[in-house]
């Protein structure tokens, strides 16, 4: 399941800015461990952000997104107290979904 994401969403002048910090190893599959064996790739492939039921951002990641990925974006609309949901899936089939309230 992974650790919870940190999500901040703030509305200003009708535009909501969302900042997400995901907790994930994002292993590239290029690194070798001390014994010289390749560390298998393990990274988030898809991340979707929703405002209520409406998708506001859907992204696909490759392994070259940094460890513990950070993402910031803005969308029109949203009001204080409404929900933002962010979910991700990784290449091992693991997934996680977290929720935040627009402040």
């Amino acid at each position: 399941m992974g650790n919870p994401m940190k999500i901040r969403a703030a509305n200003k002048d009708g535009v909501t800015e969302v900042k997400v910090l995901v907790s994930h190893e994002m292993e590239t599959g290029q690194r070798k461990d001390a014994a010289g064996a390749i560390v298998p790739a393990w990274f988030i492939t898809e991340l979707v952000a929703k405002h209520g039921d409406k998708v506001v951002l859907s992204s696909e990641f490759g392994p070259s997104v940094s460890k513990n990925p950070y993402l910031a974006f803005k969308f029109k609309g949203g009001a204080k107290g409404e929900k933002i949901t962010v979910s991700w899936k990784d290449n091992k089939g693991d997934s996680r979904s977290d929720e935040a309230t627009i402040g």
């Binding site: 535009v15 993402l71 974006f73 029109k76």
Partner: peptide, 16 residues
């Protein structure tokens, strides 16, 4: 990043 209507073309992230 696929941006539906209403989402601004302004994204930030961190890469390797």
């Amino acid at each position: 990043f696929v941006l539906p209507e209403g989402t601004e073309a302004n994204v930030q992230t961190r890469v390797k």
